[in-house]
Design a protein around this nucleic acid. Structure first.
Length: 633
DNA sequence: TGCCAGCGCGCG
DNA sequence: AAAGCGCGCGCTGGCA
């Protein structure tokens, strides 16, 4: 029996008390509804043992369980004592399937119902009305309506959160209808997707990706520990300094109102009105307004006595840090750990995304606040230049490939072509330590950075004009044609970019859809009006696929299991693993690097992996750790 | 008060 | 005649 399952919950943060209050299921013949009771004054949910047991029996009797976003529902079910192990061996996921079938279109359950079956989505509209009405009544009755600040979702901010979605329990009858509709949709969709995936030859890639569900579930469960006290001290320090920066700006520019550096109006007043700098940058939106981003502010600060703008930049940076730190603290559980979720369908190119909190965009300056607890280490691995490597092999230029295989830097090779006169200065600068750098060194390093940016720009599908600008570091009416120089030296680059676009167009002729297959066989839709993206999708998709295989390989490694290793973070080419300090640590590190490298080498000829070890200060003198660090040097 | 669009910024 | 790619999230300001 195939069973679709869905949960309705009092929120999304199951680490702070949100719980499912309704479980629905559908096997094609009958619909099932299981309900717990929400305490209207606390939002706490209680379930009768019998009710849960009945659901578990139903699950056990099913040969397949279909979810739409399995990781979420399994997490919800686990929070009321239903073991995740019930599902791993027999789950299917229509969200994942939807991405396989049609990576570029909507993946929302209701939209999919309409798209594939013309299954009306009025139940959702009706429920929204009912809930919003019920909320008004509930407020009068003194019920605990969801809002920012409730301890069940400390990480959620007031802005941008649709809190009414957490109060479906207030309109329980409409919710029941809605929830049953969802499992009916899910069951129908799986049937359609299954056929489609098989017909299109995507069954294997779907099954491979599906293995990530359990892996990312475990990553989230384990989480990462965070130094709350240190963060709090940092916040206090920044707050004090920020106030000083703000007052300095006010004083220097003679501003007599409550200056808010976040307000565009205030910044316009400061820069264009009081400092009398003409508008040089506009935003790119429909209604352009004076831009106030870093690029613009930096340029303006070079035009005048910079002090007010220097103070402004300092203020903004610290403010960003404070919001980041506050967010991390809010997401912590009782053990001071965050539990970011890693979304395997987070991007359309198989890369994953992260949220609650986003673990993939934490400022490098603040990362030291995360780390292993005493007695544990993090093995942090990186795939070296993975996107550039994929690109080089795909371009097929022998010289580029040779460079990688000899461990040479492709960025440097290209720098040699377009800025040969800078090479000596660059090599000298590279050999120095940070404190020794003089102005000339800094300049050479900046040129290198521009080359790197330009290279990525090209891979990402920029026009030659834009790429030349990036290499050059600025717009200019008479730019040297760097791209042409590079193409002359490394034939195949242009051809490769064009070929990806042509593949997408050929696919359209045959299948009425723009798409390319990336390394590994996964199919990526290309926006019909933006075929130039095909090249980037190919490269980014291949990198995402390699990371997918890497995580699966590492998870399946005997040492991973034996020593209770736990991946806890993934940053597209980096993967961190938490493990107890044991004598076998060197073997574990080696096994991890091998698992990742082999994942890469199943698609491209080489895949270098570097690693470093992160340990808790308390383990400073641990002999195992110290020996490894000594050897690693 | 809630919602939405636009902007800006962190990461890869 | 046009465009380097992919994300999540906080804040402002306009609108209902």
């Amino acid at each position: 029996m195939i069973l679709a399952v869905d949960t309705e919950t009092t929120g999304t943060d199951f680490f702070h008390g949100c719980r499912p209050f309704m479980i629905t299921a559908c096997d094609g013949k009958s619909n099932y509804v299981f309900e717990g009771r929400v305490d209207p004054y606390t939002r706490d949910v209680t379930w009768e043992q019998d009710e849960v047991a009945e659901f578990i029996d139903l699950v056990k009797s099913a040969s397949k369980i279909i979810f739409h976003n399995a990781a979420f529902d399994i997490r919800a079910l686990a929070s009321i004592g239903i073991p995740p192990e019930l599902f791993w061996d027999k789950l299917e996921d229509t969200l994942l399937a939807s991405h396989c079938v049609c990576s570029g279109d909507t993946h929302n359950l209701k939209d999919l119902g309409v798209k594939y079956f013309n299954y009306s989505d009025v139940d959702e509209v009706f429920l929204e009305e009912q809930v919003k009405d019920a909320i008004k009544e509930a407020r009068k009755a003194g019920y605990c309506v969801a809002k920012a600040g409730h301890h069940h979702f400390p990480g959620l901010r007031k802005n941008g959160t649709m809190f009414w979605k957490m109060d479906y329990w207030l309109a329980i009858d409409a919710c029941r209808t809605y929830a049953v509709g969802d499992v009916e949709r899910t069951l129908l969709l799986w049937d359609a997707f299954k056929t489609s995936i098989m017909v299109d030859g995507l069954w294997n890639v779907y099954q491979t990706r599906k293995k990530l569900i359990r892996i990312v579930y475990n990553i989230q469960t384990n989480g990462k520990s965070f130094d709350k006290e240190k963060a709090a001290r940092l916040i206090a320090k920044f707050e004090k300094e920020m106030e000083e920066h703000r007052w300095n700006i006010k004083r220097l520019a003679k501003i007599d109102y409550r200056f808010n550096p976040n307000s565009r109006q205030h910044l316009v007043d400061l820069i264009h009105n009081r400092l009398k700098i003409p508008v040089k940058f506009q935003t790119k939106g429909k209604k352009p307004v004076p831009a106030m981003d870093q690029k613009a502010l930096k340029s303006y600060s070079e035009m005048i006595d910079a002090e007010p703008l220097v103070q402004l930049a300092l203020y903004k940076k610290k403010q960003k840090h404070i919001t980041d730190l506050t967010s991390y603290i809010n997401w912590l559980d009782e053990n001071n750990r965050t539990h970011s979720s890693l979304n395997i369908t987070g991007t359309r190119e198989t890369r994953q995304s992260s949220n609650s909190p986003n673990d993939q965009n934490s400022d490098k300056i603040l990362r030291f606040l995360f780390g292993p607890p005493p007695g544990y280490v993090w093995i942090c691995t990186d795939m070296v230049n993975i996107e550039l490597r994929i690109w080089a092999y795909s371009v097929g230029n022998v010289e580029l490939i040779k460079a990688f295989e000899a461990g040479k830097s492709v960025h440097e090779m290209i720098m040699e072509i377009i800025f040969p006169e800078q090479m000596d200065a660059y090599r000298l600068a590279k050999s120095k330590s940070k404190s020794q750098l003089n102005e000339l060194d800094q300049k050479a390093l900046k040129v290198y950075q521009r080359v790197k940016n330009g290279n990525f720009s090209r891979i990402y599908g920029a026009t030659d004009m834009k790429t030349n600008e990036t290499y050059h570091g600025s717009k200019s009416t008479s730019l040297p044609n760097y791209c042409a120089k590079i193409d002359a030296r490394f034939p195949g680059i242009k051809e490769f970019t064009d070929s990806r676009r042509k593949l997408a167009e050929e696919c359209y002729v045959r299948h009425k859809t723009y798409a390319i297959h990336t390394l590994g066989g996964y199919r990526l839709d290309v926006p019909p009006d933006e075929p130039f993206k095909a090249c980037n999708y190919f490269v980014q998709g291949a990198a995402g696929w390699i990371m997918t295989l890497a995580m699966i390989n590492w998870d399946a490694s005997p040492l991973y299991r034996k020593f209770n290793c736990q991946m806890n973070s993934q940053l597209h080419d980096g993967l961190d693993t938490e493990v107890k300090i044991v004598p076998a640590l060197p073997l574990i590190i080696e096994a991890k690097c091998r698992a990742i490298s082999e994942a890469g080498k199943s698609l491209i000829p080489t895949c270098d992996v570097t690693w470093e070890l992160l340990y808790n200060p308390a383990d400073e003198t641990n002999t195992i750790v110290q020996e490894i660090l000594q050897q690693h040097k």
